[in-house]
Each structure stands twice: as structure tokens, then as C-alpha cells.
Computed example of a mutant assay.
Amino acid sequence: MSAARQLPLAFPFRAALGREDFLVGAANVAAVSAIDGWPEWPDGGLLLIGPTGSGKSHLVEVWRRRSGARRFAADALPENVVDGLDDVSAVAVEDCGAGVDERALFHLLNAAERRGVDVLLTARSAPGFWRVTIPDLLSRLRRLPAVVMQAPDEDLLAALIVKLFADRQIAIERGVVDYVLPRLERSFEAMQSFVDQADRLAMAEGKPVTRALAARVLAACRPLPVAETSPGEPATD
């Protein structure tokens, strides 16, 4: 395959401490900078706001590995959550929003402030949309420095697919990437799963990752809408 037909990887990537390479683009550069600013957070806390698939969980993992933070799911905060701060200096609470145990979260934030424990929260919307009923909790949440993450754009998603294949020593053609992108969930997990399955199938059959092979992998994951498949697309490799 000629170099001209390959999709160049134009984005820098950051090693996520052995978990994955985190690609940095306009959609997440502010959040990455904020995470990199720890432990010099002026208020001892940070709120990451962004849609599903924007990379919040990946940055939490990067930060957790660095800080030793204890991680909680917002919808499963234990009643004795404050006891979980006895032996940690940082804590992360993921997917905050409507329905979160407000009292548990309020106690957690108060205890973290008293004990000098840094807090990282993630959510899909700003606290004003959570329908918080405890005024002091809402006030505290609004005081947290917040960074908004955007959904990754097409260029960043394309670079991510290329990087995931490159990690497996596979050069992928632009046409394959362009075919896969609109048919795949816009999340790291979905792309990682696709690349893994495509690699396994290509190795099993001794074939390169072509558009036809990619279509078979996608079809195995979920049926493709009829509108997504044109008459001119090949049915076999």
C-alpha cells in the first residue's frame, strides 16, 4: 500500500499509564490540561462535564493512576462513603447528575474539604441541570472549577482508529476508516472492541483489514441499517 493511501496520524498521543493512548484534540485539550495541573488544583477539586464517549472515564483513570484516588459511581455511593476517605488523599465520583444520592455526595465533599482530599467529579451536564434539592450542595458544586469536554470530532476519531490499529502493527487505509466511522458508536470502548475483532478475524483468515472485512465485523456486532449499505459495496474480500 502506498503512503499516499494511508491516513496520517496527525494528533499527538499521551500514554495513559499503561491503559491506553489518549489522543489530544480540540475537544479535550482543556480537560487534559486541567488533569495535568493536579496536584496544584487551587480549590482541591475539579468537575469534568461532557457527553458519553467524550473521554471522561479515560481521564479519570489517568488521574486515578497518578493520584491513587478511590473511585465511586455516583449512583452507588455507599452511606458510609466518608469512611472511605480515611486512607486516601484523592477521590473520583463518576457520572454525577439527577438521581445522585445528594446527602452522601454532600457529606463526601464536606469531609474531603476538611481532610484535604482532592475530588474529581464527572457528569454529562452542569450541576444546575441535576435538580439538586439541597441548596448548600448545589452551591458547593457550582464553586467547583469545571471543564467542558466536547464529543470527539471526525478527525480525532479517525486518528484514534488509526492509532489502535497501528498499536497492532496494522496499516489501515483511509477508505476503511471512512467506512467504519459513521457506523460505529462514538466511544473509545466501541472502537477498541471493533479493532480487536477486526484484528482477530484478519489473523484467522490471513487477510488484510479491508472494507469488506470491516463490514462483516460491524454486522456481527449489530445489524447495519439498509441505508448504510450501498449496492456498490463488495460482499466479499
Rank of each mutant, 00 (worst) to 15 (best):
A4P: 00
R5K: 04
L9G: 02
A10V: 07
R14W: 07
G18T: 09
E20D: 12
S33F: 02
S33G: 10
I35D: 02
D36I: 02
G45L: 01
L47C: 07
L47G: 03
P51D: 04
S54L: 02
K56L: 03
L59W: 00
V62W: 09
R64L: 04
R66Y: 05
R71Y: 11
P78F: 01
V81I: 08
V81M: 01
V81S: 01
D83F: 03
D86F: 03
D87W: 02
V93D: 00
E94A: 06
A98M: 05
G99K: 05
V100A: 03
D101A: 12
L105Y: 01
H107Q: 11
L109W: 05
A111T: 14
R114L: 15
R115Y: 09
R115L: 15
V117P: 06
L121K: 06
A126F: 11
A126M: 11
D136F: 10
L137Y: 09
L138F: 13
L138P: 05
L141R: 09
R143W: 13
M149Q: 10
A151R: 10
D153R: 05
D153T: 08
E154W: 03
E154V: 13
D155S: 14
L156Y: 04
L157F: 08
A158N: 05
I161M: 15
V162R: 06
V176W: 04
V176P: 03
V180S: 09
L181G: 06
L181T: 09
A190D: 11
A190M: 13
A190C: 11
M191I: 11
Q197Y: 09
A198D: 08
L201V: 11
L201Q: 14
M203G: 05
V209K: 01
A215K: 13
L218Q: 09
A220E: 14
C221M: 15
P225V: 06
G232H: 15
E233R: 14
A235M: 13
